[in-house]
Design a protein around this nucleic acid. Structure first.
Lengths: 208, 208
DNA sequence: AGCATGAATTTTGAATTCAAAATTCGCCGC
DNA sequence: GCGGCGAATTTTGAATTCAAAATTCATGCT
């Protein structure tokens, strides 16, 4: 019984995901299966499995009989995602408040500490911290279904790169307020703060 | 250019999904790829693609090197799902209130009309109406991401069959109240009613 | 030159084949 | 009779092959 074995598909999945996040594969680009699988040194079978998984995470899009493409998000879709994020992450914050640990709070604080007096703020670094912040709270919720939806908070990359989102200067305090509510174990307030935080970003997007 | 063509995988996907809902394939049961694909008259390739799609919808579970199984939900997981449903469907109701059509309202009302003075209520029929009600409102939200999460409201089947949920007599009025709020275009209230409705079912589940 | 037609090439979707891991089954000792 | 051991069988994960559809390319026509 070989429980250690890591599936080829899983490794390919991670590599392709990274390629998309690193912009080695660009939004809208067609994914030539033969070429990509050759590049990765595997057959089309595990590559396809990985790509279908990414499709379910909305990073890849399939056009039947046409091929698979790196998903290109429209502003409308990003707005839809933000609506969903607001309520899902609001719920996460509420649930997390009930059983968050001290180490968790410390970790969340430390994520944004470097930017408190950094001028100008390194947007790319801040964006990474932001992603970690949101992903962590979803994990701390302890809800397994939310864990599956984590990808929702990884999808606004394009909007961020296009400069469509609010600048760090505007959001950093909101993050600390959420952390405060979590630390106080106040689920209602944590939920409210998180929802407002994400809703404001959506509104910025809608007015852009 | 053959746009009409329906992929084999898609047909297999629908058939297997139906088999699961119809309990031809039982929760926890192992899915023997060779046998199932033979039954369906296809090779393992399109069957596997379909099963992986169902996996992303949480109807099927994969245990690496062990095989694919019809997913068996634990009560904890169902509770997690209800937490998520409450906020997602609450959001759906709020968004739907903004642009719901008269025909939609009529359709929703007509779903529950038969049960108003039916005694005793046919639980199986009511469950179908309930599913349609929730799915419809998610569609009326107009949010494409919510449409992708529709499956969440199709997953409590087991809980229902186990008699763990609230009886129709208790929920029918809640449904009509939601419809009223939608008809009035009151998004806030529609959201509140929907959240309460689903949260109450979750609480019933937690106390069972 | 620009466009339409159709042949050549590429690429996808599906079936088949193959190797490695897991499961089953029968044998043996106790 | 029961439990463990190992060979036979089954099943999975991955590669390869094959057919059908889509795309590209070349040719000839206006």
């Amino acid at each position: 019984m070989d429980l250690e074995h890591i599936e080829l598909t899983d490794r390919i999945y991670s590599r392709v995901k990274k390629m998309i996040f690193d912009q080695e594969l660009l939004p809208g680009q067609k994914l030539l299966q033969e070429k990509l699988s050759a590049q990765l040194g595997v057959s089309r079978t595990p590559l396809l499995k990985a790509l279908h998984r990414l499709e379910s995470e909305m990073l890849v899009e399939s056009k039947p009989r046409r091929g698979l493409f790196v998903k290109q998000m429209s502003v409308e879709e990003i707005i839809d995602i933000f609506h969903v994020r607001a309520v899902i992450e609001g719920l996460s914050a509420r649930l997390a408040a009930a059983h968050v640990q001290n180490e968790h709070i410390t970790f969340l604080r430390q994520l944004f500490q470097p930017f408190r007096d950094q001028h100008p703020i390194d947007y790319t670094e801040y964006e990474k911290a932001d992603r970690q912040f949101h992903n962590s709270i979803m994990l701390y919720s302890g809800n397994k279904i939310i864990a599956r939806l984590e990808m929702l908070s990884n999808l606004h990359l394009q909007a961020f790169q296009a400069g469509l989102l609010r600048p760090p200067e505007e959001t950093i305090d909101e993050h600390f307020n959420i952390i405060k509510a979590l630390a106080a174990g106040d689920g209602q307030q944590a939920e409210q703060f998180m929802r407002n935080h994400i809703d404001k970003s959506r509104e910025a997007l809608q007015n852009a």
